[in-house]
Design a protein around this nucleic acid. Sequence first.
RNA 1: GGCCCCAUGGUCUAACGGUUAGGAUGACACUCUUUCAAGGUGUAGGCAGGAGUUCGACUCUCCUUGGGGCUGCCA
Length: 488
Amino acid sequence: MSKAAKEVRVRIAPSPTGNLHIGNARAGLFNYLFARSVGGKFILRVDDTDKERSTLDAEDAIYKGFEWLGIDWDEGPNKDGGYGPYRQSERSKLYADALNKMLEDGNAYYCFCSQDVLAEKRTDAEKAHEIYRYDEACRDIPLDEARKRVAAGERAVVRLKIPRDLSIVFTDLVRGEIVVNSSAFDDFVIAKPGGDPLYNFATVVDDHLMDISHVLRGQDHLTNTSKQILIYHALGYDLPEFGHLPLILDTKRKKLSKRAGAVYIGDFQEQGFLPEAVTNFIALLGWAPGDNREKMTLSEMVDAFKLERVQKSDAIFDMEKLMWLNGVYIREMDIPTLTSNLKPYLKNAGLVDDSTNEKWLESVMVLEQERIRMFSEAPEMFEFFFKDIEYSPKLLQVKQKEDSEISKALSRVKETLNLVDEWKASEIENSCRALVSEMGWKAGDLFMPIRIAVTGRKATPPLFETIEVLGRELSLSRIDKAIGLLKV
RNA sequence: GGCCCCAUGGUCUAACGGUUAGGAUGACACUCUUUCAAGGUGUAGGCAGGAGUUCGACUCUCCUUGGGGCUGCCA
């Protein structure tokens, strides 16, 4: 049958055991880009077969994560497309049928070995530096006998009866031909006692029943794919296409862990990254349009996306570059948007509240815009606009100048500023520059003490614009305070 | 240990047998400048190693080395 003629249907199938992980987000993004680029469907399936660890909250966090990134799906638990249910926990009947078929066909069997005994054998093997494999003790128990024992209440899992010495071959869309021999696997468990399906089994049943045409997932599933192909065979299903994406690694070259700082999409959101920047950045981890473009919108990425251009090797997550890209996006925002985005961070730091004048806040934002790379940097960097400043008087000192000179100079600045009639950066600058030349100082020698006096720090936005935004009253009182600090 | 995957500057990548190995980020320098950013310009930095194949290899093959993944009654 011609696969090319089939509708493209891809999916992301996260398990709701926590927030949306960056790796899952990227896998989702690639599936989304692929689907959209060829006019296919992108499905969100919830793999919640692990009842112990799955929660509805986590499921919700996953939706929120994808929504935040701007990745929408065509079918999912809350978006029926005729292939539901989309939660594995609601598809028990389907798995039971498939399991029964495998049992009947002799492709799977009940295993009564106790977990304890198996665990013991496993540790023994490890101690002896041998490879542990299930000893297939139950492989040949006749089905009717096994069923009687199960009916009598014996605890039994179901294992796949793996064909011996079978070459498993498939063509990976990103890596080419992959060959593994079935002897690499033992008869692994596909269903728990009671019939609850395990991942590899449930995934195959669902991907088949949902007509998934391409399975694109992280290369950490490469081994699973071979196992799953065995299940496809056992069930008599046609194989979908497979493609294994490179992994995202931390700076230690390990699968991204919490230590790397941010690993959940929510973390990036909290730290003040823009979803557009995050999406853009993670797309570039393992993919490139090929024309040196780096900054792209989602729809530009859809247009440029080609599965053949997906990288084979894993990518290290470079936070520095993400921050740069985020800064690029921030600089392109209009001020009202930037303000409303940044406000929660300032509020949270107790710097602004609802009574804060919006227009004034926007004038602060103008000065912040090209200086922050993520929103969470803003409160610390610009708190002097919002609250009293503290600094060491030493900062006011300038090489070659006596404290008394600086003190006197600041007094003159005060007088000068008092005479400025229109409180605008240009006016303020003109008068200060006039003062500098009158005093015969170097501009920097005077401007730095002023800067310290009004902001309490050495690195600030342009001085005169800062003074304008600070306002006459505050600026003058801070200069006054600085003069007091010099205690001459 | 076994099986599988991967390998271009620190990092993300371009190159699909013939290029002075390109871009971005990061670093450094210069520039702009009242500081910090942003911007502009420039510099340093790479085909992991070894055999082949070929007139010619970053590109193809093999080996070595290095890195990663999997090896659950998790997904």
